[in-house]
Amino acid sequence: MDEPTIRPYALQAGEGWTYRFAELGIDFVVKVGEQRQGRGLGFFELTTRAGEEPPNHTHATEDEFFYVLQGEVAFRCGDDRFEVTDGGCVFLPRGIEHGYRIKNDGDARLLVVTTPVPDDAGWGGFVGSFERDSELRVVPPWERRLTGP
C-alpha cells in the first residue's frame, strides 16, 4: 500500500482543524490528525467546562493521554481515580471504561493524544472518526493558502 505524502508543518496558537463534538456542543482543535496528517496519532486541544464532559465510554482501538493545561479534572478509568491540575497528566489505556469531570469553575484546557491500534479497515480512532464523518468548522488559514480560497 502506498503511503500518502505527508509534509512537515507548523501551527501557531489557535490554529488547527476545528471540529464540533455534536453530542456535547463543544469544539476541539486537531493539531495532528490520524487521517489527515498523521500516521496513527491524534493530537487535539480542547477547552471545556463543568457540564460538558462526555459520558463514561470505552475506546476499543486506542489509548488516550490527557495533559491538563488549565483546570482541575477528576479522571476515572475502571476502578482507578486520578485528580489532575495544571501541568498534570493521565494515561488511560484502551479497553477500560473511563471518563472525567471538570471540578473547577470556568474553563478547563486539555491537550489530548490518542494512539489508535491499526486495523485492516483503516478506521483509526476517535480523531479519525471526526476527520471522516464530521463537519470541518474552521479550516486553518495556512491550509487555505495552500489549497485555495
Score class of each variant (00 low, 15 high):
A13Y: 03
P8D: 11
D119P: 03
T18I: 08
G78I: 02
V29I: 12
R39F: 00
I6C: 07
K103V: 13
F82P: 02
L41A: 06
G106W: 12
L69S: 05
D80R: 15
N104E: 05
D119V: 11
E72W: 10
G122R: 10
G33Y: 02
Q12Y: 04
Y9L: 07
R7S: 12
F21D: 04
D120N: 07
R20Q: 09
G71V: 05
E34S: 05
P54I: 05
G106A: 12
F65R: 05
P54K: 08
T58P: 02
Y100Q: 02
Y19M: 06
P93R: 10
N104V: 09
R94K: 14
D119W: 06
R20S: 09
W17H: 09
V112M: 11
H57D: 10
G38C: 04
T114Y: 12
P54M: 09
D105S: 11
G88K: 05
Y9K: 04
E53F: 08
I26P: 02
T61I: 08
C89V: 09
R101W: 05
A74D: 12
Q70E: 15
Q70L: 14
L41C: 08
I6P: 00
G78A: 08
A13N: 03
V117F: 10
V113W: 08
E53M: 09
G87E: 02
G16E: 00
T48F: 02
W123T: 15
G99N: 01
D2T: 15
A74R: 13
A13L: 04
F21W: 15
V112T: 15
F75D: 05
W17I: 04
D80N: 10
T47K: 06
R94W: 05
V29P: 00
T85Y: 10
L41I: 11
I26V: 04
E72A: 13
E64M: 13
L110M: 14
D107P: 13
G42F: 01
D2N: 09
G33N: 01
L11M: 07
T58G: 00
F66T: 12
